[in-house]
């Protein structure tokens, strides 16, 4: 604090008047200066997995990691459940777990022929030793 008892942080109180605060009033009616459309064009390519009750895809959407395999089926099911139901979010969390599992299994697929060869070798050697 300074001698007058005010805090000496640079700019202290500079935005004290509500009229200078950028979020006041909370809602205002002013079109964005950058937008040169009344309604944006629609993104095409593919239809996103979207919430139940949405009649059209939003004008833009992300296209990363589309749903696939069993986790994708669970996610598709989840998005048919309204978002105010806990079931929807529980299904999405279950889909996440399955997704990770699928990824780990897929990453280990190259090990399968090696595992089969090792198992076959083990069985063969065991039989040979028994004779």
């Amino acid at each position: 604090m300074d001698d007058t008892g005010r805090v000496s942080v640079a700019g202290a109180g500079i935005d004290g008047a509500p009229s200078v605060r950028p979020g006041v009033p909370r809602e205002r009616r002013a079109p964005d200066p950058g937008a040169h459309w009344n309604r944006p064009e629609q993104q095409h390519d593919l239809t996103p997995l979207a919430r139940s009750g949405l009649l059209h895809a939003t004008p833009v959407f992300g296209t990363v990691a589309p749903p696939r395999a069993l986790s994708g089926a669970v996610r598709r099911l989840a998005y048919r459940v309204p978002e105010h139901r806990s079931t929807r979010w529980a299904l999405l969390l279950a889909g996440d777990k399955l997704d990770v599992l699928e990824h780990r299994l897929a990453a280990g697929v190259w090990l399968l022929p090696v595992a089969v060869a090792l198992a076959a070798g083990y069985v063969g050697v065991s039989r040979a030793l028994r004779r």
Binding site: G23, R29, A35, P40, L54, P59
Partner: peptide, 23 residues
């Protein structure tokens, strides 16, 4: 998007043109 119901009111974090997954 800058022009939807929410963006027009300055509520850019609520834009309804960019998230199809939920409200």
């Amino acid at each position: 998007c800058g022009t939807c119901f929410y963006c027009e009111r300055g509520l850019y974090g609520d834009c309804e043109s960019t998230n199809p997954m939920n409200d």
